[in-house]
């Protein structure tokens, strides 16, 4: 698989992992982390399927990222992670009905222009697959 697809998939996994964790923890409500209740709270958190799925997605995304690093230049791959900022911002506008300010829309647009410029000019520096 080409590095760019591994990177995009890795970002997708992180972003959805984040949303699943958020949803899982929201469903659990107020959590008591005082020492008297710590172990039962941790048990509650780590037996919640949405939380476990979120953590699994994080782990998978790091494997994808490492695989991407074994073939793409770091100065090419790393800035592409900023797609995550734009994705999370856009997703929260949609899911949480936040109304985006013009500054934020401009910010997202500029990030995406930078990312496209990088991605479109990065291919020739990619190292061959092992």
């Amino acid at each position: 698989m080409k590095a760019i697809y591994l990177i995009l998939l890795s970002i997708l996994f992180v972003a959805s992992g984040q949303l699943l964790l958020k949803q899982g923890l929201t469903e659990l409500g107020t959590l008591d982390f005082s020492s008297a209740h710590l172990s039962s709270t941790l048990f509650l958190v780590f037996t919640k399927p949405l939380v476990l799925l979120g953590l699994f997605l994080f782990a998978s995304s790091s494997v994808l990222w490492l695989t991407a690093l074994s073939r793409a230049e770091l100065s090419y791959a790393y800035p592409l992670l900023s797609i995550g900022y734009a994705t999370v911002a856009i997703t929260s506008f949609i899911l949480f009905h936040e109304s985006p300010s013009w500054t934020r829309i401009l910010g997202i647009a500029i990030i995406l222009i930078g990312v496209s410029l990088l991605a479109l000019n990065g291919g020739k520096h990619e190292q061959p697959s092992p």
Partner: peptide, 26 residues
């Protein structure tokens, strides 16, 4: 790693940083 960080790559990084800064304004 002796990577060749091209001018286009620096420009992309500059744009991305500008975007992130703008995004952080509410």
């Amino acid at each position: 790693f002796k990577e060749h960080v091209t001018k286009v790559r620096w420009l992309s990084i500059f744009l991305i940083i500008t975007g992130v800064v703008l995004l952080s304004f509410s």
